Simulated scan of single mutants.
Amino acid sequence: MRILILGADGYLGWPTCMYFSQRGHDVVGIDNYFRRNAAIALDCEPLLPTPNLIQRAKIWEKITGKRINIHVGDATNYAFLLKIFKEYKPDTVVHYAEQPSAPYSMINQEKAAFTLQNNLISTLNIVYAVKEANRDCHIIKLGTMGEYGTPNIDIEEGWLEINHKGKKDKFLFPRQASSLYHTTKIQDTDMLWFYVRTWGIRVTDLMQGPVYGISTDEADRDSQLVPNFHYDEVFGTVLNRFVVQAVANYPLTVYGKGGQIRGYLNLKDTMQCVYLSATQPVKNGELRIFNQVTETFSVNELADKVCAVGNKLGYNVNINHIENPRKEKEEHYYNPKYTGLLELGLKPNYLTDDELTGIFRKVEQYKDQINRDAIFRGIKWSAETLSGTA
């Protein structure tokens, strides 16, 4: 396939570029370096320094002999994006090119407005570029399980059949986001569903849970190929944050009671899920939705796992229940269905003690680079703003 990866510099984007390239596909990656620049501005850069995309592509080509075409540009710039589509005519486009952080979207009006504009305009531009350059191009958009919220019923894979007053129909599963970021992801889904119905495009929407991990088979070939591993409150995912906190002798920051349950998956499994979706595409005029998780845990369960493994490795790991800065239920029912990707062939990497130990060992190599001030900033879901980041 000719595959276009938008947001190619990200935690998921760069490993996805390598994953497809390793398997013989023609890969084009674009990024505008938003996350790199935002991390510098907020003083929360990733744990491991990473070369820029052009440099990483050169390292990858030197090691493997395989070329990844890189373009630095912005998916919200339609002229730029359309030029890329017309030049490469991709069979598949993977849309990671969104502001990826719920906390970032809640800092202040400026960052909320950026999140809204970036996420929705980039999605709209992709739809129009597909229409104009290659109507059969399969759009794979990274959604989030956070779109669903925490309803008191089972979460189906995207759709819900309703019986009402003797009539039956199928609708998108009701959404109730917990942040502005998650709200834009809901709006993405609605927009794509509109254009699927109207123009007959084909879309797979992946409702992904929080991802953890630092290693993939491709990234492990060279330290300069590792993904952008964040551990801060803004861009870091919860398990990655907890491991770095344990190594840094920083009490694990459990929000509130810690009963919040979510679905999680290994970074390696994100690669699998996207690849399976791309190599088994949907038909034109179809919106396919998968819940992209492999296991569910409460925050307390994750903290306990990190404590148990960390203590075995010689760390004195403590847990600190702090006032929850977010607006979310801390005790709730949570039962998502996630069989679709398993049926396509997903072979999950589960969160075993050995897997967690591997993350600890990798973080240990860079423990002197941990910026303790970046770990927790107290971004609140209220009308308050984060001092010093406006």
Rank of each mutant, 00 (worst) to 15 (best):
Y366M: 01
A41K: 14
G65S: 11
T339V: 11
R56G: 07
T64P: 13
R35E: 12
A278N: 02
W14C: 08
F171A: 03
L386E: 11
G345K: 11
Q55D: 15
L116Q: 06
M145R: 03
N52D: 15
L120M: 13
S179Q: 02
R221L: 15
I70P: 07
Y148F: 15
C137I: 01
A57V: 07
D232W: 02
G10C: 08
A248E: 06
Y338L: 02
E331R: 11
I5G: 07
K89G: 00
K168D: 01
E286S: 03
Q187C: 12
L172N: 04
I54F: 11
P348V: 07
L48H: 03
I121L: 15
M18V: 10
Y128Q: 14
V203S: 04
Y104I: 07
G209F: 08
H25S: 08
G209K: 09
V28H: 04
D217H: 10
K380N: 11
L386T: 14
Y195C: 00
V234F: 13
R36T: 04
I54V: 13
N37C: 02
I54R: 13
N249S: 14
N240C: 12
K83H: 15
V238W: 01
V28M: 14
V299G: 00
A39T: 10
W381H: 11
Y128I: 04
L351I: 09
F376T: 08
D74C: 06
A374Y: 00
L4F: 15
W199N: 06
V317H: 04
L346G: 10
V254Y: 02
S179M: 04
G236W: 10
T150I: 01
K312S: 13
L4T: 06
Q280H: 14
E61Y: 12
N324R: 08
M207A: 13
I201Y: 01
Y212Q: 05
D353S: 14
D354S: 14
D154S: 04
A278R: 01
N152P: 01
Q99P: 00
P210W: 03
G158L: 04
A308Q: 08
K312T: 05
L356D: 07
V27K: 05
R361P: 00
T279I: 14
I3F: 05
G388P: 09
V293Y: 10
L287A: 01
E355F: 08
T189G: 07
N266C: 11
L124Q: 10
A102I: 02
G166T: 13
Q292Y: 03
I30P: 04
W193I: 00
V196S: 02
A278V: 06
Y275M: 04
L124A: 13
L386R: 10
P49G: 00
R262L: 13
R2P: 00
K170W: 01
C307K: 12
T183N: 07
N320G: 00
I5E: 07
V293D: 02
G13D: 05
Y181D: 08
Q99I: 13
M271K: 04
R197A: 10
G256T: 09
